[in-house]
Design a protein around this nucleic acid. Structure first.
Length: 569
RNA sequence: UGGGGAGUCGCCAAGUGGUAAGGCAACGGGUUUUGGUCCCGUCACUGCGAAGGUUCGAAUCCUUCCUCCCCAGCCA
C-alpha cells in the first residue's frame, strides 16, 4: 500500500517458508502452495484506546494478510468484564478504519466463543487434565512457588473427574461466591516455567459483560481463551509481543490436549517511543487524573490523539513499516516519527501564511487606502495545487521573532536599516522603531520599494531573508495550540527513588496562543484540514474549531536551522 | 541464583561462512522568494557485547563469560 520495495523481516521470512512448504511435515506438504493462505488477526482488549504501538501490530497483521493474499480478523479479547467497555470497542474500530484497514465482516469477540470454551474445558476435565480448586488467591500464589523454587500441588488437585464436572457445572450455575473456586489446568507444579504450574482457566466473577450481559458468572482467563480463539478462527500465524513467548508452551499444551488446529505463534518486540509512555494503564491514568484533556489529546501517543494532532494515516503506516520488525527491545527516536510526518506533509499540505506572535509593521510610503492582491503558490511540491490571492496593505503583521533591534551576526531577518523580502510581496527596509515606556517594541516602521512587487528586484539586488506576513485589516484571528513532548525526558519510566513516571511530565507540553492572525483564505477551514504555515510548521484544524473561533493544533514544526544556531550561540 | 528472550554506528535496522546495506540524528557544502524542500559529502578505517577456538576465510559455526529485557494477576 505504501511501500514499493518488498519488505523483509524474520516474520515475513517464516511466512514465505510456510507458503513454500518448507520445514513442513509430510502430510501438510500435500497441500500446494497455491491453495495455502495465511490468516492473521489483530486481537485488542477493549479496555482503552489504541496507541501507536497497536498501530505497529495492526500494520503488521493486516499488512501481512494483504501482502500474502490472506485475511486478517479483528477480534476483541473481551474476557475480563471488569475492565472492558463498549466505548473502547467503538473507538478501536474507528481507529483501525481510519488507519486504512478493513476486516470486512470478520469482526469477532472472544466472548463469541464462551460456549465453545466451556465445552473445551469439559473435555480437559474429562481427560483428567483440569480440576476445580478451592484455594484462595493468596494460597494459590503461595503454592505456586517462586522463580527458583518449585510450587506445591493443590490439595484439590486430585479430585475425581465426576466431582470436577459437578463442581465446574455448579460454578457456572452461580452456586459459589466470587473468587471462591477456580478451574485450573493440571500440568506441572514443578515446571521452571511458571505458566505451566496449573494455570487458572476460569474464575467466578459476577460482573455484567458488555456483550454477554449476565449470561455468565464464570469467565475464561486470557491464557485459556486466546489460543483456542485463534484456533477456532483458523489463524495460521498468531503474532504477538515478546512477553508472551513463555506462554507459548502453555498454549501449545492446550491445543495438543484438545487436538484442534494449531496456529503458529510468533513474537516480536513491541514499539517504544522516546518522550512518551506506551502502556494503556499509564495512559488511562493520564486521562483520569486530567493531565491531558482525554484519550484524543493531541499530546497522547494514541491513534485518536495523533489524528487530532494532524498526523496523516498514511504517514503512520509508513512509520510502522519503516521502523521494521525484530525481536530486540527497541525505543524509536521521536524525531524519526516527526521526520516521517514532515515527509508526508511536505508533499501534501497546502501552504498559508499565519502570524503566531504578531508584530505590527507600518509601511510609511505605502498608500493609505490601497490594497493589492498578490499571487501565492499553494504548494511548491505540487503544481496541481495552484495559486491563490493574498491581500496586502499598509499595515501588516510579521512574526515577533523576525525582528531584532540588535541582531547577532547570524541573524539575517529584519533589523534597523536592513532590507528583507515579504513573501510574494515587496522588499521592505526598516527605518525606525516605536517603543513604550518600558522599552517594548510596539511597532516597526518601514519603507517599501514599489519596483520589487512580487518579490524580485529589477536591479538584481538580493536580500538575505524572506518573511511571511499578513495584512492587518484583512487578517482573521485564531487560536493556535503549540504542542511539545508530553514528557520532559526521553525515558519517562526512569525516575528518582520512590518517584513516579508522572514526575517527568513536561510542564510546557502545551502552549496556547490566543492572538494569532491568519491570512483571509483560511476563513472557511474545517476540522481536520492541514496546512503548512510557511516558515513555522504544519497545523491541523482542531475538532473543536468553528468559523467564529478558529483553532489550529501544531502538528509538527518545520526543521529550523535558525533555532539551532540560536541555541549554539 | 529457575525458565524464556535479546545484544551490529547516538536511534531504528539489513546481513544466515566470502571480506559491515539503508533510514533517522549529527556534521560540512550547494540550490532556494519558506534559515523548509531538494541535491552532494562525512559518519562501524580488521570493527558487529567480551575473550578464546574452528576455518584459506567468521557479525555469521563452537566454547566460556558479560550486559539488558520478560515471567511468581483469579490482567491482557
Amino acid at each position: 500500500m505504501d511501500d514499493i520495495k518488498e519488505k523483509s523481516d524474520f516474520i515475513r521470512e517464516i511466512i514465505r517458508q510456510y507458503l513454500n512448504n518448507e520445514n513442513e511435515e509430510k502430510d501438510n506438504s500435500e497441500r500446494s502452495a497455491k491453495t495455502k493462505k495465511i490468516h492473521t488477526r489483530f486481537p485488542p482488549e477493549p479496555n482503552g484506546y489504541l496507541h501507536i504501538g497497536h498501530a505497529k501490530s495492526i500494520c503488521l497483521n493486516f499488512g501481512l494478510a494483504s501482502e500474502f493474499g490472506g485475511k486478517c480478523n479483528l477480534r476483541f479479547d473481551d474476557t475480563n468484564p471488569t475492565k472492558e467497555e463498549q466505548e473502547y470497542v467503538d473507538s478501536i474500530k474507528e481507529d483501525i478504519k481510519w488507519l486504512g484497514f478493513d476486516w470486512d465482516s470478520r469482526e469477532f469477540y472472544a466472548s463469541d466463543y464462551f460456549n465453545r470454551l466451556y465445552e473445551f474445558a469439559l473435555i480437559l476435565i474429562k481427560k483428567g487434565k483440569a480440576y476445580v480448586c478451592d484455594l484462595s488467591s493468596d494460597e494459590i500464589r503461595e503454592f505456586r512457588g517462586t522463580l527458583k523454587e518449585p510450587g506445591r500441588e493443590s490439595p484439590y488437585r486430585n479430585r475425581s473427574i465426576d466431582e470436577n464436572l459437578r463442581l465446574f457445572e455448579e460454578m457456572r450455575l452461580g452456586r459459589y461466591p466470587d473468587g471462591s473456586k477456580v478451574l485450573r489446568a493440571k500440568i506441572d507444579m514443578s515446571s521452571p516455567n511458571l505458566n505451566m504450574r496449573d494455570p487458572i482457566m476460569y474464575r467466578i466473577l459476577r460482573r455484567s459483560h458488555h456483550r454477554t450481559k449476565d449470561k455468565w458468572c464464570i469467565y475464561p482467563t486470557y491464557d485459556w481463551a486466546h489460543g483456542q480463539s485463534d484456533s477456532i478462527e483458523g489463524i495460521t500465524h498468531s503474532i504477538c509481543t515478546l512477553e508472551f513467548e513463555d506462554h507459548r508452551p502453555l498454549y501449545d499444551w492446550f491445543i495438543e490436549q484438545l487436538e484442534i488446529h494449531h496456529p503458529r505463534q510468533i513474537e516480536f518486540a513491541r514499539l517504544n517511543l522516546t518522550y512518551t509512555v506506551m502502556s494503556k494503564r499509564m495512559l488511562l491514568m493520564l486521562v483520569e487524573e486530567k493531565h491531558v484533556s482525554g484519550w484524543d489529546d493531541p499530546r497522547m501517543p494514541t491513534i485518536s490523539g495523533m489524528r487530532r494532532r494532524g498526523y496523516p494515516p498514511e504517514a503512520i503506516r509508513n512509520f510502522c513499516s519503516q521502523i521494521g520488525v525484530a525481536k530486540a527491545d527497541s525505543t524509536v527516536d521521536f524525531a524519526f516519527l516527526e521526520y516521517i510526518i514532515r515527509e508526508n506533509l511536505n508533499k501534501n499540505a497546502l501552504r498559508a501564511m499565519a502570524i503566531l506572535n504578531p508584530l505590527k509593521v507600518i509601511i510609511d510610503n505605502y498608500p493609505e487606502d490601497l490594497s493589492e492582491e498578490l499571487t501565492a503558490i499553494n504548494n511548491p511540491e505540487d503544481d496541481s495545487a495552484g495559486t491563490r490571492k493574498v491581500p496586502f496593505s499598509k499595515v501588516i503583521y510579521i512574526e515577533k521573532e523576525d525582528f531584532m533591534e540588535e541582531p547577532p551576526g547570524k541573524f539575517y531577518r529584519l533589523a534597523p536599516g536592513r532590507e528583507v523580502r515579504l513573501r510574494y510581496a515587496y522588499f521592505i527596509k526598516c527605518e525606525s522603531v516605536v517603543k513604550d515606556d518600558k522599552g517594548n517594541i510596539l511597532e516597526v516602521h518601514c519603507t517599501y520599494d514599489p519596483q520589487t512587487k512580487g518579490g524580485d528586484a529589477p536591479d538584481g539586488r538580493k536580500v538575505k531573508a524572506t518573511l511571511h506576513w499578513v495584512s492587518e485589516k484583512h487578517s482573521i484571528p485564531a487560536e493556535v495550540r503549540l504542542y511539545n513532548h508530553l514528557f520532559a525526558v526521553e525515558n519517562p519510566y526512569k525516575t528518582e527513588e520512590g518517584g513516579d513516571f508522572k514526575d517527568n511530565l513536561n510542564p510546557d507540553s502545551l502552549k496556547v496562543l490566543k492572538d494569532c492572525r491568519l491570512e483571509p483564505s483560511l476563513l472557511n477551514v474545517k476540522p481536520g484540514d492541514i496546512y503548512q504555515f510557511e516558515r513555522i510548521g504544519y497545523f491541523c484544524v482542531d475538532i473543536g474549531s468553528t468559523k467564529e473561533k478558529i483553532i489550529f493544533n501544531r502538528t509538527v514544526t518545520l526543521k529550523d536551522e535558525w533555532a539551532k544556531i540560536k541555541k549554539s550561540v
